[in-house]
Amino acid sequence: MKLVTLSAIAALFVSVTVAHGDDWTGYTYSSVSTTSAVKGMNRIVDRVGKETDGELKIELHLGKTLQIASSDITQAVGDGVVDFAADFFFSGSVPIARVLNLPMLIENDDEWAKASSAMEPILQKAFAEQDVTLLGGYRYPEQTIFTTFEMKSLGDLNGHKIRVTSPEQGKFVEAFGGAPITLAGTDVPTALERGVIEGVLTASAGGAKNWHEFLPYDYRFPVNYGNSMIIANTDAFEALSDKDQDILRKIVSEEGPETTAEFIEDEKVQQQSQADAGMKITPLKDGDLAMAREKLTPFWETWAKENGPQYEEALKAVRAAIGK
């Protein structure tokens, strides 16, 4: 009787483990199915089901369809509330990742590739400390300045309230006399209508895709890049067979860059569409880039020092990789 009972318990344990490994709950911060971010995640889900011959199935839920705050996605993955996710707001859980988002540090695609490669082992370790396995990611186009007032240079930020998505973006706005305000994306349209904010830092293919009707001006100053991490619960990932782990990693490594490429292409399309709809797009003023870089460089060093030796080492690694 004892042997039967133990066997039954063992069988139950195996069945639960297999079910958890085979049937995953996925989540993305984005609530709009037509964005490149969601399209990329859907491709991952579809490919995983096919290439594992149905051994791993992921049901993807869009943002706001589960009771998970955008800022809590990485924690929800680590806690096993969901097994798999794309997280744009991961820096609250893994703040060292914000090195990649420091304003004026990374200014082009080549620098991004070198910097993200330098940060990869640091981020792998940081996510692992949250019981999360980092599989890959994608990035948005450069974040520029969309406003309700006309801008011809960075000096025109002075005295205006700008929505930001990180303290580092906030420091940029403050450096030019503006007032940074943090708001959830769902609150942006109402805040613009009521004058609570007068602008946002985003991409044409990002927030401006949804909010362009409230934002008649775009000053094409590249403040920084925003990126999303594609992550899995470590216990769930390790419960997969080695074969399925390899398949999932391979698919994410291919679809992450593809999503980035689609965002870059969509940026051109959306920028033209917004211009056709009446948005005034002002090109970068000569001298603004050099002036902003000189003003923000000391902030990188202060930011890293205030956060501790690990941050200083991470910043040092990135700067060495991009030659700054």
Rank of each mutant, 00 (worst) to 15 (best):
A232G: 03
V94P: 04
Q169V: 01
V4N: 11
L60C: 05
S31W: 03
K114M: 06
D131M: 11
W211G: 00
K125D: 15
T282C: 09
G155C: 06
F237A: 08
Q245R: 06
K114P: 00
S33Q: 10
L6K: 14
Y29H: 13
A113H: 01
I247G: 14
R163S: 11
L6R: 14
R293I: 07
R293T: 12
M41A: 09
V32C: 00
F176C: 02
L315P: 09
A184L: 13
F221E: 01
F299R: 08
Q124A: 15
S15R: 11
T182V: 05
K250I: 01
A86L: 04
A239V: 08
K57G: 13
G26E: 07
T190V: 04
L284C: 09
N42R: 09
A304W: 08
A113L: 03
K305V: 13
T182N: 15
Q274V: 06
W300L: 00
V14R: 08
K125C: 08
S228A: 15
A86T: 04
A97I: 07
E129D: 12
F146N: 02
I162Q: 08
T65I: 12
P180Q: 06
V77M: 06
N158S: 14
F13V: 11
S153L: 11
R98S: 12
V164G: 03
T282H: 09
Y27S: 02
V82Y: 01
E213K: 09
V318K: 05
G21N: 07
I230E: 01
